[in-house]
Each structure stands twice: as C-alpha cells, then as structure tokens.
Amino acid sequence: MREELTNEELIQLYDVVTSSVNAQFELWLTITFAVIIASYLAGHRLARLLQNLMATLYLAVSVLLYLMLVGAVQFSQQFEALNADTSSNSSLVLAIVVLRTLVWILGTIATIVFIFKGNKDDAGNAA
C-alpha cells in the first residue's frame, strides 16, 4: 500500500469530508427548527413526560450528528498527516471549527430551553 496521497486525491478527500460535514450541519439545523416549531405550536399541550422525551431525543440526535462530524474530520486528518508537504490555512480552519462547534452547542442548549420555556405565554392564553 502506498503511503502518500496525490494532491488530487487530497482535494477529493477534502471535498468529500467538507460535503459530509456541511450535510450533517444542515440536517442538524433542519431538526432544530422542526423542534422549535413543534414546541411553539404544541408545547403547551404536551405533557411534561413528552417534553422530556422530545428534549432527550433532540439532544441524542444533536450529539450523534456532532460525533459523526468529528469522526469525519479525524478520518481526513489521518490521511493529511501522511502528506506533510500539504499546506492549509490552519487559523481559518480552526476558526471555522470553533465557530461551528459554538453554534452547535449553544443552538442545542437554546432549543432544549425553548422546549420547556418557549411557550409559557401561549400556555397562559390557552386556558
């Protein structure tokens, strides 16, 4: 087995990983907005047990998708480590990773809070 990848192969690997990461992030965004809308429209009618179940399922999917993202990035880094002569703008990549992680974590926390507290005003009007 050869140890070094060509630049073309590294570019293809980068494209595959980037597409995978973006697809996972888009899926997370879609799920997040679906949970927010469902909580807003029906949250005041859900029993506390169902709210807990919704929050648990949402958290589990968020963590699973994030771990898949981390796995894809680690997979590509294994191959990039074989080719030490490849240069990438590491500060830009680091900024993207940090910001995306921050959005993911804060968005997940905010959505879980919204599941339980986002419909309080609506609950008072429903009675």
Rank of each mutant, 00 (worst) to 15 (best):
residue 111 T to N: 03
residue 29 L to K: 12
residue 76 S to E: 15
residue 93 V to S: 13
residue 10 L to T: 00
residue 32 T to M: 13
residue 32 T to A: 13
residue 113 V to Y: 06
residue 84 A to P: 04
residue 27 L to K: 05
residue 109 I to P: 02
residue 107 G to M: 02
residue 60 A to G: 08
residue 51 Q to Y: 03
residue 3 E to S: 08
residue 11 I to V: 14
residue 34 A to E: 02
residue 2 R to Q: 12
residue 76 S to A: 15
residue 50 L to I: 00
residue 95 A to Q: 05
residue 81 A to Q: 15
residue 118 G to I: 00
residue 84 A to V: 06
residue 32 T to N: 07
residue 88 S to W: 10
residue 100 R to F: 11
residue 99 L to G: 02
residue 6 T to E: 05
residue 35 V to E: 02
residue 64 L to C: 11
residue 74 Q to R: 14
residue 25 F to W: 06
residue 24 Q to C: 08
residue 42 A to Q: 06
residue 14 Y to Q: 15
residue 22 N to Y: 04
residue 103 V to G: 08
residue 118 G to A: 04
residue 118 G to D: 02
residue 29 L to T: 09
residue 57 L to M: 06
residue 73 V to S: 05
residue 99 L to Q: 08
residue 39 S to Q: 00
residue 81 A to E: 15
residue 121 D to T: 11
residue 42 A to K: 12
residue 53 L to A: 14
residue 97 V to G: 08
residue 96 I to K: 08
residue 125 N to A: 15
residue 48 R to I: 09
residue 23 A to S: 11
residue 48 R to V: 09
residue 48 R to S: 08
residue 1 M to A: 14
residue 35 V to Q: 00
residue 51 Q to S: 07
residue 57 L to N: 01
residue 105 I to W: 06
residue 69 L to T: 10
residue 70 V to K: 14
residue 118 G to Q: 02
residue 126 A to Q: 12
residue 118 G to L: 02
residue 50 L to T: 03
residue 3 E to Y: 10
residue 26 E to F: 09
residue 20 S to E: 13
residue 125 N to M: 11
residue 127 A to T: 13
residue 78 Q to E: 10
residue 39 S to M: 03
residue 3 E to A: 05
residue 11 I to T: 14
residue 58 Y to Q: 01
residue 3 E to P: 00
residue 60 A to N: 04
residue 83 N to F: 03
residue 14 Y to V: 11
residue 31 I to Q: 00
residue 9 E to Q: 14
residue 35 V to I: 09
residue 101 T to Y: 04
residue 82 L to Q: 15
residue 92 L to R: 10
residue 124 G to A: 15
residue 41 L to D: 05
residue 120 K to A: 09
residue 61 V to T: 03
residue 88 S to A: 13
residue 113 V to G: 04
residue 89 N to A: 10
residue 127 A to C: 09
residue 63 V to R: 11
residue 22 N to A: 10
residue 90 S to P: 02
residue 84 A to K: 12
residue 115 I to D: 02
residue 71 G to F: 04
residue 69 L to R: 03
residue 104 W to N: 00
residue 112 I to V: 12
residue 97 V to Y: 10
residue 19 S to V: 05
residue 17 V to C: 07
residue 114 F to H: 04
residue 5 L to E: 01
residue 4 E to R: 15
residue 82 L to F: 10
residue 25 F to Q: 01
residue 94 L to D: 11
residue 65 L to M: 07
residue 23 A to E: 10
residue 27 L to H: 04
residue 114 F to W: 06
residue 7 N to W: 14
residue 47 A to K: 09
residue 105 I to K: 05
residue 104 W to K: 03
residue 82 L to S: 15
residue 48 R to F: 12
residue 14 Y to L: 12
residue 19 S to Y: 12
residue 110 A to K: 08
residue 112 I to L: 03
residue 102 L to F: 14
residue 75 F to T: 11
residue 32 T to L: 06
residue 30 T to H: 00
